[in-house]
């Protein structure tokens, strides 16, 4: 296989992995949300993320099968790859924490993905552009929903304000990775940083929160070096496929 298609496949997989793993995490809220209406709201986001992941995995499978003459499917890619093969952003695999941490992660992630997808929409990869166009509609809502929650909690009660501050402290160091390109990355992520930061600052200002300075940034997810959490996520998620190889569900 040539290097270009290898890069392309890895990049698609990295997008698939990030959206799937965050979907898996958000799915943990289903039936456990702070109020019914918001249980339903975050579950809608979960379904969007899993839908995006499926689009990417299906596309990756098509490319792999063309290039390598294999029989990959969306499920073989999601359920039969190992921890070191997953290329998701570290922030997606972190435990949910409280509602503050969950909605802040969504805000950071979706604000970034919106910029990524806007780039992909312009790419000369038709399939990718189509997935991006569809996803942008969903992500616009994720950004709106999560930024409103950031403002609400930041400017809510003393307790919610403090919880937001704790969440920022816990998550900020996982945002640097967004903008450090992996060798396979097809868009210039470094160039997105300014725009992203602008959005974060605007929302934080309304939320009476501030952006931390000089934080050391964690990296590794894009190259398969993860936190300890991912192993458990995969062990759980992949258990049936691993226990009953080849079975149809």
């Amino acid at each position: 296989m040539n290097k270009l298609s290898n890069y392309q496949i890895n990049y698609i997989l990295s997008l698939a992995d990030s959206t799937l793993i965050l979907g898996q995490r958000n799915g943990e809220w289903c039936a456990h949300g702070p109020i019914l209406e918001q249980d339903i709201a975050i579950t809608n986001i979960t379904l969007d993320l899993i839908g995006q992941a499926r689009n990417f995995y299906q596309y990756a499978a098509t490319l792999i099968n063309e290039v390598e003459h294999k029989n990959e499917t969306e499920d073989s890619l999601a359920y039969l790859r190992n921890e070191r093969d997953f290329k998701n952003l570290l922030i997606s695999e972190l435990p949910n924490g409280d509602w503050a941490q969950t909605i802040l992660r969504q805000f950071f992630f979706s604000s970034f993905m919106l910029l990524v997808f806007e780039e992909l929409e312009k790419a000369n990869d038709e399939q990718m552009a189509a997935i991006a166009t569809k996803s942008i509609k969903e992500i616009n809502y994720h950004v709106k929903w999560s930024s409103e929650w950031v403002i609400r909690l930041g400017d809510g009660t003393e307790e919610s304000h403090n919880r937001m501050k704790n969440a920022i402290e816990a998550l900020w160091m996982y945002t640097g990775e967004f903008f450090i390109p992996a060798d396979y990355e097809m868009i210039d992520v470094a160039s997105l940083k300014e725009k992203w930061l602008e959005k974060i600052k605007a929302v934080f200002e309304e939320a009476t929160l501030s952006v931390p300075e000089n934080t050391f940034m964690q990296t590794g997810g894009k190259n398969g070096i993860h936190t300890e959490h991912l192993g458990y996520i995969l062990a759980e998620m992949q258990s049936l496929q691993r226990t009953y190889p080849g079975a149809e569900w």
Binding site: Q24, D39, L47, Y57, E236, W249
Partner: peptide
């Protein structure tokens, strides 16, 4: 939900459990 054996089954199950939240509401 976390252990659904395929992505399709996962999406179906999530949508179903979510419907139940709606029905309760």
């Amino acid at each position: 939900i976390s252990r659904a054996p395929s992505l399709k089954r996962k999406a179906i199950l999530i949508a179903k459990v979510q419907d139940e939240a709606g029905h309760g509401l």
